[in-house]
Design a protein around this nucleic acid. Structure first.
Lengths: 107, 107
DNA sequence: CCACATACCTAGTAATGCTAGGTATGGATG
DNA sequence: CATCCATACCTAGCATTACTAGGTATGTGG
């Protein structure tokens, strides 16, 4: 359960460049070392939500050989939101660590 | 938003010894460096939930001079659950860090 | 040809933290 | 002594959110 952090992760997954939904799922699975194996019912609504919020923009691609795909890319607002989320995460994780500890690192 | 991690934090706050609800709120606020300033409507239901689940036990104290308080303490199952949550958190935080990064620490 | 991976979607569910209200007592302040 | 605030407890209902469970369709490999 990534309650509350899914959006940040999706944005981060699109930071390297545009990608379609299914690819986002695989990127997240790979980059997290199989920890986050998210079902489609989690990702697709999240992508729609983020586009609705103006943090992503999408366009359909229909290559001559291949299936139709909806490709998402970060908007300017999306990049800004990601930066904010990064700071939030650092603060949040630091605070949780003060309870669940074992994760001290140098200033 | 601590969605999904609140229980672990409450359990951790009671790790040092029994405490009543209001004290738990203050402990959490202090230990988190004011990051988690939780309303009572968050903590009390959480304490009830955890007691219901057998992870906490409670008893009323009515000192001669003072207000009635409900004191909670970790049960054995609660301590075990906390240990599990600790491992989960480490794994989870590590995975999120692989996206939101900037937090590398020595093995 | 048939199974499977790819690729998209949505309605409904369950969990959960929070808002907003309520009650009551003790200590401090004027 | 009256008033206010901090302490201390509680709950009903709300909003968000990730997930379950279904559905559709196409390309590829056996």
């Amino acid at each position: 359960m990534l309650k509350g952090h899914l959006d940040a992760i999706v944005l981060a997954a699109l930071e390297a460049g545009p990608a379609h939904g299914y690819a986002v799922i695989e990127t997240i699975r790979a980059r997290s070392g199989q920890t986050f194996d998210l079902p489609e019912g989690t990702i697709y609504p999240a992508l729609h939500r983020l586009e609705q919020a103006g943090l992503l923009s999408s366009s359909w691609t229909t290559p001559p050989s291949g299936r139709r795909r909806r490709v998402y890319s970060l908007t300017k607002a999306g990049a800004a939101a990601l930066a904010r989320r990064r700071k939030d995460w650092t603060r949040f994780a630091g605070a949780v660590d003060s309870f669940l500890g074992g994760r001290a690192w140098p200033a």
